[in-house]
Amino acid sequence: MVRLPGNKSEPGKLRAAFFALLVHVVFLALLVFGLNWKNEAPEALSVDLWADLPSHPIKPAAPVAKTTSQPKPVKPQPQPQPQQKTQPQPQPVIKAAPPPVRKPEIALKDKTEKPHPEKEVKKPEPVKKEAPKEAPTQKTVEKPVPKEAIKKPEPIKKETPKIEPAKKVEQKDDAQQRAEAHKQAQQQEQQMAAAQARAMGEIEKYKAMIQAKIRSRIIMPPDLPGNPAAEFTVTLLPGGDVLTVILRKSSGYPVFDDAVERAIYLAKPLPLPPDPGLFSAFRNLNLAVYYRE
């Protein structure tokens, strides 16, 4: 009866397809380029890595550099000029990535000026010039990049000069390097010692804090004669939780022993240094608690 209405052509099929594709392309582009998947993570990681370290190594390093070098305040600023003339070797070390235009210049100077500066400057150098030369390199390496660990830049300093001058001036540089290496070893030792002392200080500090916290929790039994001491071995968990408390040496008064033991459990979590590397010193803690201070 009724004729079929002609199939109505649907509007914008192609346009719709185009829009659909556009939506996906935009979304994908947003995902790939909009979010910095790659860049975010390394930043966070590098912060994690260096958060604790710089406080130990850099402070001891600074005074060393200061004492050895007098012309230091002058040298670092006009760096490019004095170094190009007098010290052709250390330059590539200081500037790890100089603009590529500079390199040929240095190479040229190496060839042309080598004989003169080597004889003029280097002869009196080995002992005296050592320090000033050493100082600016340290300055440039350590100051602007305080996050870099001490251990990393140092091997580079040792090795890179070795390779480059070795071809041309071997004997002088040998002496120089030995002196340098010696100096750096000394420095390193000093820094290690300083770091160790610092760690020891930290451990002592936290031990005192633990003592104080436990002491504040003790309910002292009244009227004990003398100054009895109870010694305990406390096993700690990372985070400061108390795992076990073992009475190592009784004070002779069970009342006092019990009070101290209770106090140790009450005092948890015990304060621990934030550096997890120091925890090993606290795992089995020997505590001696005196009745009187």
Partner: peptide, 20 residues
Amino acid sequence: LLASLVSWWFIFRKLFTLRQ
């Protein structure tokens, strides 16, 4: 991905159709 593409295609087609 295919489902998403096709469904967006239909979404736009329907959008135009219904609006008209």
